[in-house]
Design a protein around this nucleic acid. Structure first.
Lengths: 367, 367
DNA sequence: TTGTATGCGTTATCAC
DNA sequence: GTGATAACGCATACAA
């Protein structure tokens, strides 16, 4: 006995008084326990079997399984996620990092998984703090749904081998995937739409060059102009920021230029709203005197006046795809997913675009 | 021995082979464990002490505590929330139920608590499902931040004695609080603002009467009109729904009426956007020919053209207050909080309101 | 004040 | 296929 008592944790239980205590206290018989044991007792099986049933283990006798389900129904038993997480090491929780302007409600995606939401672009400190909490909570994956993600911010997640899905930008991590948005598709549609309406001078209000997303959108614009047979020389590009103010600045610049464009494509809907403001101030009616195209199709685009023709990047698809990718990562062996996942974009035509004024000058141009 | 082996769960451990196993496997020495034991060992104290330190228990010797903090720093130890939750029965998670149109990002509020977000008004089934998950996850409180909550939906939460904070509507539950929004304050400001600008006929675009919030807003409007010395008879009230379409319908109705109002106050910003659309279509310039006031101050209100004068209900304050209330509930004994918590509203003047046209007819009214 | 031992509710591992 | 039991990581009643 002395040998035994030297160290080990549980064997000391053989001492008599402890034995007594553990016998005198049934303990298990707590009032509204509703735990796995209660179900097991009611179904006359072991806890293991109940666990197997709730986890859909195939190798359970059908009759037993039925008994278990019955007992579960009777008791109203619901597995305790905390205990499950503790013993299995699986939190069944995903992280979601978004930028404030994005609508983060992707309830469809949260089926068997919960989601922790955090905003990125308010304060960097807070974002960092959020990332810390994500790892603490042992999330099984994080969807980084922001367009200005910094890889530095994600280091912590990468260190913990947490699967990552990013947009436009590849995280240097095993178990990560990129959603590569096909900006060219939507922008080509937009340019061709405008060209078909007779626009020749189409301006582009872009974002800061150091932002991957801005860069991509701008490059896609230039390419779309080329492939549509328009001249890049007649397609001025403004470089500001992606906000409302960026839009007002861009619009002012274009209006001040010697030869005004007849249409403006903006890098974001917010910029487009800024442009609309400036145009209204200067009594330049949209779309009659100037066509405006946005980008993102945010919720309000349809409700602005005039409603905004814009390039939709289906956030629903984006989110669904991101979370699908995360799910596929879970339990997978570390391996970089080389192929990016493509997300389409497409033009949504509303009221902010119409025929170029040039084609609508009434009598000046005889048939 | 036979007596012992008859039933009891753990005493069987005295049988030799098990002893052997448990001795041969130290188990505790796992690689990157980083658990409380590692810290305890490093600080040369017991797990209990570490636990006490991390939980800020006062009765710990300062020297020991320092050793523990030191060890925590060295090991990078972070308590496992799952285990903590399991043993303490506290999930440290709050629920947040919102309607889709609301911006749900309240990152400030989530300090030591996590938040599960769910949307209510898309599909009732989904909301119900979300509520179920909330109870499963054993959230310690739910902020029901939607204006169309049904008490039926909350039954499950109430049954589980989960603290609740609601808006405008009192849940029939112990441990619940109501945020009562002072609609009258903001609406009085709005009416007086318009009255001061010379408006006499002020219309109100309201929502469905069966919705508590719509009702309150309408009643507050009527009262504000009275207390401002205007005549309710000259203040037509339209009853539609709180959406964009509701706003267009209201505007059409008002424009068709024999004596048009010169200003419209809408029950929501979305309605106001709908009204703006109709007014633009009919070439009635806002604010010159018609002033428009919204309600809520949603994000886009400042970015619409013209920017929307609206009654702000500070969502930040709303959320902070709600979560503060929840925190105060936690651990409190069941007790109905009778006094509602007041939330102020206030007018934000922007570009969609100006002098009544009546006062601006140039020469018709000599000084 | 500090340490010991037990339990939280579940899954995983092994015998059977 | 099924059951007994250890382990998950922590907090806490109780003993010291």
């Amino acid at each position: 006995m002395s040998l035994v008592r030297e160290r080990p944790p549980r064997l000391g239980a053989t001492s008599s008084e402890r034995m007594d205590r553990s016998i005198q206290t049934p303990l298990r018989e707590k009032a509204g326990a509703k735990d796995i044991r209660l179900v097991a007792k009611k179904a006359r099986v072991s806890c293991s079997t109940v666990s197997r049933v709730t986890n859909g283990c195939a190798s359970v006798d059908t009759r037993l399984a039925n008994r278990v389900w019955q007992a579960i129904k009777e008791t109203g038993y619901v597995p305790n996620p905390q205990a499950r997480a503790l013993v299995s090491g699986r939190s069944r929780t995903l992280g979601l990092l978004i930028s404030q302007t994005t609508n983060p409600l992707f309830p469809d995606l949260v089926q068997s998984f919960e989601v922790m939401v955090g905003s990125a672009d308010s304060s960097h400190d807070r974002a960092e703090c959020f990332v810390k909490r994500l790892t603490q909570r042992r999330v099984e994956g994080v969807a980084v749904m922001t367009f200005n993600a910094e890889s530095r911010l994600l280091e912590e997640l990468i260190d913990h081998q947490i699967p990552l899905v990013t947009i436009d930008f590849r995280a240097d991590a095993p178990l990560s995937a990129v959603l590569e948005i096909d900006y060219l598709g939507g922008l080509t549609q937009a340019v061709q739409h405008l060209a078909a309406l007779g626009h020749r001078r189409i301006a582009f209000a872009g974002g800061p060059a150091q932002c991957v997303t801005s860069r991509r959108r701008k490059e896609a614009f230039v390419q779309a102009i080329r492939s549509s047979g328009l001249s890049p020389d007649e397609s001025p590009v403004f470089e500001g920021d992606l906000t409302f103010d960026g839009g007002t600045q861009a619009a002012c610049t274009f209006l001040d230029s010697p030869i005004r464009p007849t249409a403006i494509i903006c890098s974001t809907d917010m910029m487009a709203f800024g442009a609309l403001r400036v145009l209204a101030r200067q009594k330049i009616s949209v779309p009659d005197k100037m066509s405006v195209v946005g980008f993102d199709d945010v919720h309000h685009a349809a409700f602005a006046t005039p409603s905004l023709t814009t390039i939709r990047m289906c956030r629903d698809e984006l989110a669904k795809t991101a979370f699908r990718a995360l799910q596929s990562f879970i339990g997978a062996e570390p391996k970089v997913y080389r192929d990016a996942i493509r997300i389409n974009t497409s033009l949504v035509v509303r009221q902010s675009t119409t025929l170029s004024p040039r084609l609508r000058v009434p009598a000046s141009r005889p048939t």
